[in-house]
Design a protein around this nucleic acid. Sequence first.
DNA 1: CGACTCATTGACCAGACTCAACACCGGTGG
DNA 2: CCACCGGTGTTGAGTCTGGTCAATGAGTCG
Lengths: 263, 263
Amino acid sequence: MYEMLSKAEVLTDAADTFASCEPRPPVPASRPAAAGAGARCASCMMRHICMAASLEADDVERLDRAMQGWRTVRHNERLFRAGDPFRSLYAVRAGSFKTVVTPERGKEHISGFFMAGDAIGMDGICDETHACDAIALEDSVVCVLPYHLLEALCREIKPLQRQFHRMLSAEIVREANQMMLLGNMSAEQRVASFLLGISARHRARGYSATSFVLRMTREDIGSYLGVTLETVSRTLSKFQHEGLLAVQGKSLELLNLDALDAR
Amino acid sequence: MYEMLSKAEVLTDAADTFASCEPRPPVPASRPAAAGAGARCASCMMRHICMAASLEADDVERLDRAMQGWRTVRHNERLFRAGDPFRSLYAVRAGSFKTVVTPERGKEHISGFFMAGDAIGMDGICDETHACDAIALEDSVVCVLPYHLLEALCREIKPLQRQFHRMLSAEIVREANQMMLLGNMSAEQRVASFLLGISARHRARGYSATSFVLRMTREDIGSYLGVTLETVSRTLSKFQHEGLLAVQGKSLELLNLDALDAR
DNA sequence: CGACTCATTGACCAGACTCAACACCGGTGG
DNA sequence: CCACCGGTGTTGAGTCTGGTCAATGAGTCG
């Protein structure tokens, strides 16, 4: 979602996948973009925050071979839907996603935003069915990692096992923090915390921590934060008046990280 | 606030410890395990919903041998604290716990309640440090499973690996649902949902789904649900007036599950 | 250019919070 | 045995944050 660098700079390999996009199908096609070919983790800019983190070169190679390839997902299309059978995990290679939980009754809820290097789909493991929809916030590319192969590799490659468990655990911690936010923070604090979170994730990826573009709508942000879109808009305006940031539509510049944090 | 449990207090004989003061543990007094010996998963009533689920008998035996034994945690004492080094996972064998996330600034937040058969501590995997406090809601007993041994076993026993991944994923899904609750449900809906959740967990363990004792305070419930203790109290009173339940202090009887669900 | 989605801002209102008083309950100690 | 006490739970009154409804503006795409 948030990269300020040009797409091409991030995509590298993925760029040609984008270039060769087929005419947009009504439903996302699930076939691998590069069937058979490895996913080239070794050349991926996100390898240090992804599944391949802290692996030796030859283990990265094995992971690569397990990859089913890439898949492109166009803006607003779904990578998977709640109820779909769970078969693979996905790693965002380029672009960004939101995950949406839809209760039987009641409004749908955005449960997370995912950018390059993040893994999506871990909620599907427990009952072999995806528990949410994953929707692309822009034209995106994911690496497809069949779960049974990952399981097998985890039994053989200890660092991979460790990294995978770390990622699962990190998701638990992330959600626990989000629960805390939803449970006892004011609307202002939620928005400030959200912006700082985005900022930190940018920094971790080598992008600007203070200047970025929000890929999601105000409504998405509101849903994620448990407030209305009007409140998000008002809060951003207020922060702007106070000189904490500059906002123009989806473009955002944070002017005072400390003051935001003090909320 | 409360005195800490001495580290040396590793359990030798949980049954005896418990029998002397026990209020009403969900788990029947089972035969004591010798110190250092396995935890006797085979005879544990919770084996179906715990780590040993769907394991062959001899694999259960291996898991047993990996167990470091039991540990008792008395009412209001901590199993671990945020910041403690992560070394083991815990499975609640008897009693119950709450987990508390404490932000640098701001009020602490109850992130979960755990009863017999539940696993605690999975948040510690990602950076080898516990991210929350786990506090006993009553005198309790946990099985202690050193994490490095679990990792090793998961590389050898495929069904155990699968079960462990399921448990991690289930925690992610549980939290996602809780986020949804915190994000867009009214106070009444939150309380109703909470009660139905407790009810379902009791049912899954073979206890009464309609009649039980809440081990936590109104304040705990409120923190967990993102409302104040007064709101919890008022809502319970309202539900009682409407004939949906009968409440007397911590004792609760659900009289109309469907009507609660309709909230 | 029109149609649409998305964002901003204002006015009003209600659900939940805060503050406060009081009841209850189990334990403790005189 | 009773008085006392701290922690807990209930209930009421007043307040305010954030939701709802509505109008308008800005941006985008065919």
